[in-house]
Write a protein that binds this DNA or RNA. Sequence first.
DNA 1: AATAAAATATGATATTTGTCATGCTTTTAT
DNA 2: ATAAAAGCATGACAAATATCATATTTTATT
Lengths: 225, 225
Amino acid sequence: MSKCEQCIIREFNSLKALTKDELIRISGCKTSKEIKKGDVIFEEGDTINGVYCIKEGICKLSKLSANGKDQIIKLVVKGDLLGKNSIIREETSNLTATALNDMEVCFIPKNEIINDLKKNTDFSLDVLKQMAKDLKDSDNIIVNMAQKSVKQRLADILVYIHESFGVDDDGYLSVILSREDYANVVGTATESAIRILSQFKKEDLISTHGKQIKIIDLNGLKQME
Amino acid sequence: MSKCEQCIIREFNSLKALTKDELIRISGCKTSKEIKKGDVIFEEGDTINGVYCIKEGICKLSKLSANGKDQIIKLVVKGDLLGKNSIIREETSNLTATALNDMEVCFIPKNEIINDLKKNTDFSLDVLKQMAKDLKDSDNIIVNMAQKSVKQRLADILVYIHESFGVDDDGYLSVILSREDYANVVGTATESAIRILSQFKKEDLISTHGKQIKIIDLNGLKQME
DNA sequence: AATAAAATATGATATTTGTCATGCTTTTAT
DNA sequence: ATAAAAGCATGACAAATATCATATTTTATT
């Protein structure tokens, strides 16, 4: 099993603030897991007993709304520490995490994290900073949900995925979402998402091949009104 | 000037985790401020040099959107520590804070807070917990913005204000927002907010007297569809 | 390879929400 | 006290989005 103190992933998250000794201790009690595309990592209401350090793959965080739709709140990627909010709140998870492709994660027991938060101020300050950043991101999402049209929000998420996760060898977005997922990110009906993607295709902003989407006119999408 | 170590407000926020000595130190460098209704405490883009501990009054946190509307993200009340996110992020504020009624606040310089975050783990853990809770709240707001109708969101905010801030002697909501503010909370056009409030009035869910709103049928508002 | 199931696509229509116009009421300033 | 400004209210209409129906394509299963 790989060792935390040698793992490069930690540079992407708050674990980088831990000392070598602390990392060795965590290395000793962590467990590696492989998660298959489509698998649910944890569900709304689950008690989470640790955090998942994501080494590879992407998952969605979603929440069931009163009308039965599964709103996607966030895409979580390599380097993120999944589940830390529930751990810190000492409550069950308010979100469901589902793998969007095959993932490789390390599970670190809750007590280890809490222990380090109490003992290592560099670590807790870094977590604090990360959460403050997440809150700012949430503010922006709220404003966009409230003020932008579905078309703009859909253009936004395409640009976001393009810029954050890149494209494969053929130029297609490397994160593949179903049309329903796109609808659940922007908060609209699946048919509306499909319709608008078709429109984008007609306007030569994107091209598609099955579920795969290629962005043709990035600036056009950015300037969507 | 009042002393932090004797101030009861700190029980409402993370400052309760500070030691007596730390509170005395903060007491020595804080400044009390009176803020008039309508005054802007800080604006989007401002550098904030400390946090505001709110002793009395309510303010709104808003963010200007691309279409020129001022989306209200949150109402901030007695006990809240305003500005801590910007301080922690070490960036300028992403939000504008505007007093909704006359306020009394204590301004605590940034360095004092940062110092305590580094030295006192009880304090930093409590701040962490508060921010994790804020993030959960944001998740809920995002889901509601995405999935609920304007009518439902407007009913929600009325219920929220009723339950969080209570009513005056005549039964009117003690927080008074303009119709435009209501529109900017739920993310709709001012006319739409006015129209829906009129409709609520016709359906005997609320009654109004100028800007004042009285909730008549709380359950009716809660069950809005 | 054939079939069933799921996902995508699109039309028709209903509902929700936004925009513009206009009048009324309350508040503010002189 | 009065004029001006701001805020509230409502109608008419336009635009955006949801819903329901149905066809087609893609993916999964046997």
